[in-house]
């Protein structure tokens, strides 16, 4: 009986070893989706991050429209650059305030240990990353619409703007997700998050601002391609580095 059992189990081991690549990926993706769904469900019930993101975006758009609303009517290069800068500043600060919640909340509610014992580290990272991408997409949609309506920003090339927002948002999400994991157990989380985020986020931010200014003006999609390539490469590099780094951050 035991001999038969061992033979069968050994068969499974061999099969698992041979197919470990695809099995492992499927398992991690399944667990990642579970983490994403859990976080989304929790977020929809508490609405903590969404409230922070939307309120920040709305405040920024209203403040800009009341303070320098005339800037939206001007079509000079400087005015377009200022419009793009204001848009990305609003996005950046909202993201810095809301996107670290994923990991910080696990630490503050002390659910981190339960998750560490049960979930593969990579699944935790991917699940949190997916939620940040979703939140950032919602944030970008709301902020852009508010800027268009309240600041009367005119968009020369909607396609280039959407591409830049998507690529820039992805850059922000990759950078903020791994930073949130790093600072989750630190004492001064917000301050540390801002300090660490600054050098990591400034390069893609500058490129995104310039590309957005071009998209608001007469620049079409071809003109935005170099910026999109840079932002895409930045996102891929940060994402891959995060995948390699996360296990050490998670198990530290």
């Amino acid at each position: 009986m035991h001999k038969e059992l061992d033979q069968n189990v050994a068969g499974v081991e061999r099969e698992e070893l041979e197919a470990s690549g695809s099995l492992g990926v499927r398992a991690v993706l399944g667990a990642s989706w579970a983490v994403f769904v859990k976080d989304l469900r929790t977020e929809l019930r508490t609405r903590y991050a969404i409230n922070v993101l939307v309120l920040f975006a709305a405040c920024a758009a209203v403040a800009v429209s009341l303070g320098v609303g005339f800037i939206g009517l001007r079509r000079t290069d400087e005015a377009l650059l200022i419009q793009a800068t204001l848009l990305w500043i609003a996005l950046l600060f909202a993201a810095l305030n809301g996107l670290s919640r994923g990991f910080v909340q696990e630490e503050e509610t002390r659910t981190m240990a339960a998750l560490r014992l049960a979930a593969p580290p990579l699944a935790v990272y991917l699940g949190k990353f997916l939620l940040n991408v979703l939140l950032l997409a919602v944030l970008e949609a709301i902020t852009s619409l508010l800027f268009i309506v309240l600041v009367r920003v005119q968009v020369g090339s909607p396609l280039a703007l959407i591409g830049t927002l998507a690529a820039g948002g992805l850059s922000l999400a990759t950078a903020t997700t791994i930073l949130a994991a790093i600072i989750a157990r630190a004492s001064f989380k917000s301050a540390l998050f801002a300090v660490l985020a600054f050098p990591l986020i400034v390069p893609p931010l500058i490129v995104a601002i310039q590309s957005t200014a071009a998209a608001l003006g007469s620049g079409g999609l071809p003109q935005a391609v170099p910026a999109l390539q840079f932002l895409g490469a930045y996102s891929v590099a940060t994402f891959v580095a995060s995948l390699l780094l996360f296990r050490f951050v998670w198990e530290a």
């Binding site: 983490v35 929790t42 508490t46 240990a113 339960a114």
Partner: peptide, 23 residues
């Protein structure tokens, strides 16, 4: 005592989530 589960989820949702991440 310091093992905390997700307060926003139901008991069943907690167990289902941990079952899913444990595959």
């Amino acid at each position: 005592p310091d093992l905390m589960l997700y307060r926003e989820l139901t008991g069943r949702e907690n167990l289902r989530f941990f079952a899913e991440v444990r595959r």
